[in-house]
Design a protein around this nucleic acid. Structure first.
Lengths: 158, 158
DNA sequence: CAGCATCCACGTAGATACTG
DNA sequence: CAGTATCTACGTGGATGCTG
């Protein structure tokens, strides 16, 4: 695995991709970008509208993220060509992060997902309440098929 | 916290949401939908084009997913109102999953992300090679600012 | 068929402390 | 300022075995 060359990998790449297949590299990529921190970092950078953001800017914007996760996320995104990291060796070191065109194309999608979450949180919350309160008053369960016969865990979503 | 009513929560919900804030419920929701399995399950259901899929259909489509993860993902999505679970009490029990309108709206976004992964995997792979081979032949590092001065971990992406 | 229960291992996030 | 290093702990996910 560590000995495959770029050419080999690209050759194999021509074989139609299917993220549904676990062994497909796109599956791993999907796993990487399907990450809360990735969504937020990329969305934050996208909101900067082409401009770059400093490490601390991001840390402030993503209130609550640990330096470790921020650096880790940033590094993985840099490695994947989603963003570029620019170090300015001034006295207090300055590091800027900026989306690449590739990153910008992804940013639109991830921002949309983030916006979806903000937009539909109430519907989801109501659905959760309905689900959790379920198993108590079915009022109908003889129509040949029943919907949502869950065990109804009452624990908070955490 | 466990005693808040739906009305209270909805009242609080009017306070502008910001997924960047860790304590915001949308942050948690984003975390939930930013999941590889969620993307794949929802995308698979979306590809069914409004039709329902059986448990085993999904298990086949998402080759490699463990029954545990499949059930777990399905349950969480059902709870969130993304899909509906229909049990048909035939001799061999039959369970169908179908997207709700809410789920369909999300499916478009997640499918787009999945498609993005399939579409840009090669670019990402090339960026990764470039990054990993870096730290060896900078050839320029005096232009005032340098890009990508990473430590260059050579370990495989896993 | 469609799960659920249990066990276990690994990764990963988080807190904390230190550095160029 | 912008990280890095280390340690710990919990969650996540896989394998296995059993059930209606």
């Amino acid at each position: 695995m560590a000995t495959t060359t770029a050419a080999q990998r690209r050759a194999q790449a021509r074989i139609e991709y299917d993220a549904f297949i676990r062994s497909c590299p796109t599956n791993q990529l999907l796993d990487r970008i399907s990450d809360k921190w990735v969504s937020l970092v990329v969305s934050a950078l996208a909101q900067a509208d082409g401009a770059s953001m400093r490490y601390s800017d991001l840390g402030r914007k993503l209130a609550g993220i640990s330096p470790k996760m921020l650096t880790q996320t940033l590094r993985s995104l840099e490695r994947d060509g989603i963003l570029v990291r620019t170090v300015t060796p001034s006295v207090p070191v300055r590091v800027d992060y900026e989306l690449t065109p590739l990153g910008t194309s992804l940013a639109g999608l991830l921002s949309a997902v983030k916006d979806w979450a903000e937009l539909h949180i109430e519907e989801v919350n109501e659905a959760r309440e309905r689900y959790d309160d379920d198993g108590d008053a079915p009022s109908e369960g003889s129509a040949g098929s029943v919907s949502s016969v869950g065990s109804g865990r009452s624990s908070s979503a955490s």
